[in-house]
Design a protein around this nucleic acid. Structure first.
Length: 871
RNA sequence: GCGGGCGUGGUGGAAUGGUAGACACACCGGACUUAAAAUCCGGAGGGAGUAUUCCCGUGCGGGUUCGAGUCCCGCCGCCCGCACCA
């Protein structure tokens, strides 16, 4: 037996079948054990899994299998984020039916995932493109609409005038449609919105409670929500044309009001629009600003430009002073009030603008230590701390105090019957527009009736099923073009009416799938009691690219589901983990073609690794390690790797090489190493079984020192590996397992001489080793487990119990430092009093020699850790 | 510009303020073999020395400490996110 190699290709499908037949990973909601929910972000069914998926699902599977071994009732489901643009593109480019294309991809990817040996409960599989799923989403949409969480308003979209379609921002390249190549227009459409902005404060403050999330993600969300506290300030117009008598601005720097030298309006401000109506020059300026607006990258470098209007406002704090009103290209309509006051001395943009249009630059914040008489601002605005000066009643105050004083001052005055200044909190976060003028998405369950208005589809008529007999011959939304689908009778008055043909943003689909998994076959969106028992997800794992939108939307949606009675909690994900990317070397031929790893072979010549193109044998340039991408062709197909090395080797390698939050470089050598390690374990297990068989009947002797030493190593490894898996430090867990394996192999070589206690310790160690590798290399572990003569599955066995007595040593080896440099060491009984340690150290021959008669000034003894002699 | 992170051998990376480089990959040497693969044993941060051993070493410069990769201050470099947000 020991001569045979372990054959993953044969064993892996076999165990996958055993797990499936025994329903090993089917999770019951009424299982009394403590629940544990681990979830990886579900994939978009593009057709094939990639290395990022392999990493993501391996990480999750280790957690799932480990928690199962710890006795938890583990929920580890999988589904498909199945709506989205690529299906429509496939329809356009290859004349495929989006639904058929998607379902075929799902089938292929499911097979691939299953070949990875993931411990997934496939009975809970869901796919967002099936009416079974989205009918509940439609029903919740109606609930949320009725609860006032959804609104309908006009909003700008990118419109491709040739394809007659709305484009996502990433489909706009240099201001042009990605397919048509024509300039994109901004169009106003009436669209549905989730009122996420009403939850801005809650979503922000609750971040503090998400202690098991990466700081990076929390910070990104915080910035995205973008809270800023300031003052809404009203400036009286000198003349009041056009029904307006004042201009409202938002500022976070009311302390600098005495430095104000102009007012700037957004090109989209209502007052601008009114002024432009009979002013062609202004309306041309506005149009120009809009054209700039689409080319997002140009914004950073765009010059500050303005148009001076005939309007003037009164300075709110300086009697008799007036300020000019400009329309400026850098003022955003959808933040604050769409108007600002410019204080050039203390804001870089305002300064750039003021220099261009020759406006006053009056410093009002004096830097510490600067001279009030001579301090001036040149080309760099002063934005640091200081003392307010040249500012009337604010003089001498700190910035913070001046902000408060200004707020109080303006609150007490009134303009047009309203306070001149009001404290206001603004958020960058805007409402979540969920309408997509797209076919392949969940239909929004609304009906437009000329008589009754826009009304929800009655719940009894749900789902509003997406028709799959569609044609993509015409540009635009295929759903809108369907000959019959949108024509319905109004459910209220019976008159002919039209369905809403917009579909929901796919982010809606992914904002609640984690809740659906808890009761995937229920005929309501959730069964609240069950959802509440499973949620929040204990450990959610995915890429950092979803750090903002998906996670924020899910956090909002969970709150909305709570408000509508579908769950009883607000935060969906207790633990969040963002994995790093999978990278690979890049290869380029001499004539500049990217080569895939399969097209390259390597040789080591005089210690130098060189690459050659297979076939032509011409030299290949080995390029930098980069994220795996199609364009650079530096990816390996997971299928090929699984076929050659097996799932376990791939899993093991991807866990072993880097901490999971960092990028990992996929290397052939690395996965080969994993494969070799697999064989070492297999040999160790086989040898142990053989030793046991040969020594049958030999009397067991009492434990000797050797046996105890081995047992200590084993128990320590069990303890440490558990702690490392718990902390998601898989690379360290792997290192621990390597050390244990090395120790066991060494000891297996010694056992032959004297069986008995040592063999028993070896057997215990090997049994534990198999259990330790089980979460990571589950197929190999099952094979070893059965060879060890166990009858149950290792997947069903509890994590080995650690004997605490074996974790402590009765002796410790302390390093001895002289002046902080390690010079020697001493082995003493654990817990030996410091005074005694000190005495023994000083009487060591070696220490006496090094000290060479010099007296120790001080001796630091850190019990059971280290000794430092200071001379 | 703002925010976050990271700098340790040839490489990926270990290291509650306490022996820097665990473990692995790659490499080198040896054993086995007709040979290769596989496997096993051994070596290895840099420098000096036959050697016991000594000196230097965690991006750079300071500081705190008996003791700093780790903490503090100031730089340099790289990566990521957001960005005309008033």
């Amino acid at each position: 037996m020991s001569g045979e190699r372990y054959n993953p290709r044969e064993m892996e499908p076999r165990w996958q079948k055993v797990w499936a037949d025994r329903q090993s990973f089917v999770t019951r909601n009424d299982d009394p054990r403590e629940p544990y929910y681990v979830l990886e972000m579900f994939p978009y069914p593009s057709g094939r899994i990639h290395m990022g998926h392999v990493r993501n699902y391996t990480l999750g599977d280790v957690v799932a299998r480990f928690q199962r071994a710890k006795g938890k009732n583990v929920l580890h489901p999988m589904g498909w984020d199945a709506f989205g643009l690529p299906a429509e593109n496939a329809a356009l480019e290859r004349k495929l039916n989006p639904g058929a294309w998607t379902r075929q991809n799902i089938a292929a990817m499911k097979k691939q995932l299953q070949s990875m040996g993931l411990s997934i409960d496939w009975t809970r599989e869901i796919s967002t493109c099936e009416p079974d799923y989205y009918r509940h989403q439609q029903s919740m949409f109606i609930d949320m609409l009725e609860a006032g969480l959804i609104t309908r308003k006009k909003s700008k979209v990118n419109w491709d005038p040739v394809d007659m379609t709305v484009l996502a921002n990433e489909q706009v390249i240099d201001g042009r449609g990605w397919r048509s190549g024509v300039p994109v227009e901004q169009r106003e459409l009436t669209q549905w919105f989730f009122k996420i902005s009403e939850y801005a404060e809650d979503l922000l403050s609750a971040l503090d409670g998400l202690t098991e999330w990466p700081d990076k993600v929390r910070t990104m969300q915080r910035n995205w929500i973008g809270k800023s506290e300031g003052l809404r300030l009203r400036f009286e117009l000198v003349d009041s044309p056009l029904h307006a008598s004042n201009i409202e601005v938002f500022t976070t720097r009311p302390d600098t009001i005495f430095g104000a030298s102009f007012i700037a309006l957004s090109p989209d401000h209502p007052l601008t629009t009114a002024l432009a109506a009979d002013n062609p020059a202004l309306s041309e300026f506005v149009a120009e600003c809009r054209r700039m607006g689409t080319a997002t990258q140009a914004i950073e470098t765009a010059e500050k430009r303005g148009y001076k209007t005939p309007l003037m406002v009164k300075h709110p704090a300086v009697e008799g002073a007036v300020l000019p009103v400009y329309v400026a290209n850098f003022v955003l309509m959808d933040y604050g009030t769409g108007a600002i006051f410019g204080c050039p001395a203390h804001d870089q943009r305002d300064l750039d603008f003021a220099r261009k249009y020759d406006l006053a630059v009056k410093p009002v914040v004096l830097p510490p230590g600067a001279d009030a008489a001579s301090f001036a601002v040149d080309d760099i605005a002063y934005t640091d701390t200081g003392t307010i000066f040249h500012s009337g009643f604010l003089d001498g105050l700190s910035i913070e105090d001046a902000k408060k004083a200004a707020a109080a001052h303006f609150a007490a005055r009134s303009v047009d019957g309203q306070p001149q200044g009001q404290i206001e909190v603004n958020y960058r976060l805007r409402d979540w527009g969920l309408s997509r003028q797209r076919y392949w998405g969940a239909p929004i369950p609304m009906i437009h009736c000329e008589v009754c208005g826009t009304i929800p589809v009655p719940k009894k008529d749900l789902p509003v099923v997406l028709p799959e007999d569609v044609s993509f011959d015409k540009p635009g939304n295929a759903l809108d073009h369907h000959p019959s689908w949108k024509h319905v009778q109004c459910p209220q008055c019976g008159a002919p009416a039209q369905r809403e043909t917009d579909t929901m943003d796919t982010f809606v689909d992914s904002s609640w799938y984690f809740a659906r998994f808890t009761a995937p076959h229920a005929d309501t969106p959730t069964i609240p009691a069950i959802a509440n028992r499973w949620l929040p997800v204990d450990q959610y794992i995915g890429g950092v690219e979803h750090a903002i939108l998906h996670l924020l939307y899910s956090r909002f949606f969970t709150r909305a589901m709570k408000a509508t009675g579908h769950v009883g909690l607000e935060e969906p994900f207790k633990g969040m983990f963002t994995q790093g990317m999978v990278t690979h070397e890049t290869y380029k031929s001499e004539d500049g073609r990217w080569l895939s790893p399969e097209e390259v072979r390597f040789e080591t010549l005089e210690g130098q690794r060189q690459a050659f193109e297979i076939g032509s044998d011409s030299l290949v340039r080995i390029g930098p390690v980069e994220k795996i991408s199609k364009s650079k062709r530096n990816g390996t197909d997971p299928d090929d790797i699984l076929k050659v090395y097996g799932a376990d080797a791939a899993r093991w390698f991807i866990l072993s090489d880097s901490p999971p939050e960092r990028d990992v470089e996929w290397t052939e050598a690395g996965v080969e190493g994993a494969s070799r390690f697999q064989q070492r374990i297999w040999r160790l297990v086989s040898d142990t079984v053989e030793l046991t068989a040969r020594s049958a009947g030999t009397a067991r002797m009492a434990a000797d020192a050797e046996a105890t030493a081995l047992r200590k190593i084993v128990h320590r490894a069990v303890h440490n590996v558990a702690a490392d898996i718990d902390g998601l430090r898989f690379n360290r867990a792997v290192a621990q397992i390597y050390e244990l394996t090395n120790a066991l192999i060494r000891s297996a070589g010694l056992v032959t001489a004297s069986p008995g206690a040592r063999l028993a310790a070896l057997e215990e160690g090997v049994t534990c080793l198999v259990q330790l590798i089980a979460p990571m290399m589950p197929h190999l572990a099952e094979t070893c487990w059965s060879v060890l003569g166990k009858h149950e599955l290792v997947a069903d066995v509890l994590w080995p119990a650690v004997d605490p007595a074996l974790l402590v040593d009765d002796e410790v080896t302390l390093p001895i430092q002289i002046n902080g440099k390690r010079r020697s060491e001493i082995t003493v009984a654990k817990g030996l009093p410091s005074a005694e340690v000190e005495q023994r150290v000083l009487s060591l021959d070696e220490i006496i020699r090094i000290l060479d008669g010099k007296a120790a000034k001080k001796i630091v003894v850190v019990p059971d850790r280290i000794v430092n002699v200071v001379v």
